[in-house]
Amino acid sequence: MFITFALITLLGALGMLLQKNVVVAGLCMVAAFFGVAGLFVLLANPVAAALQIIVYTGAIMVLVLFVIMMLSSHQEEEAAVSHPVQRWLSVALLAVLAFGAVNLVLASPGVKALAVKGAEMPQAMTLQTVGTNLFADHLLGFEVAGLVLLAAMIGAVALTKRNL
């Protein structure tokens, strides 16, 4: 199961990186988000999986696809100036960084110990646990998050409206 969802996630992300058509790239992104939601289910966290699907695929990606279609920028524009050296350098740098980071994770004794210690499946996360934790210990953060969302909403309207 894990390898299936991991493959869906990574192939979706790879499709987004390589796809020429922006709308198809967006749909690849949706596949990647669904794969991540599957990974969350395997992590005994159905609440996070549901939120992932509702917020990312339901809200954010729909918004992005709307904007793509509104601006009718389905194809990537021709490069004004091509930067072949910079592009290859960034690919090489990313490959080195990714290789180093994966090696670091696989070699880390702390990660290995934690993987052994937490091997048995915990109780699945319930909405009740999340709610108790959120409202008992993090009420201020919750209110601030609401304020940030309100500010973002007003900001988005102010930025897109032609004559306020």
């Binding site: 992590l43 966290n45 609440v47 934690l114 999340v130 108790t132 934790n133 993090h138």
Partner: peptide, 12 residues
Amino acid sequence: ARFRGGDAQAMV
């Protein structure tokens, strides 16, 4: 969070 025994703080 899962490998630390289902830590609810992570969900927050």
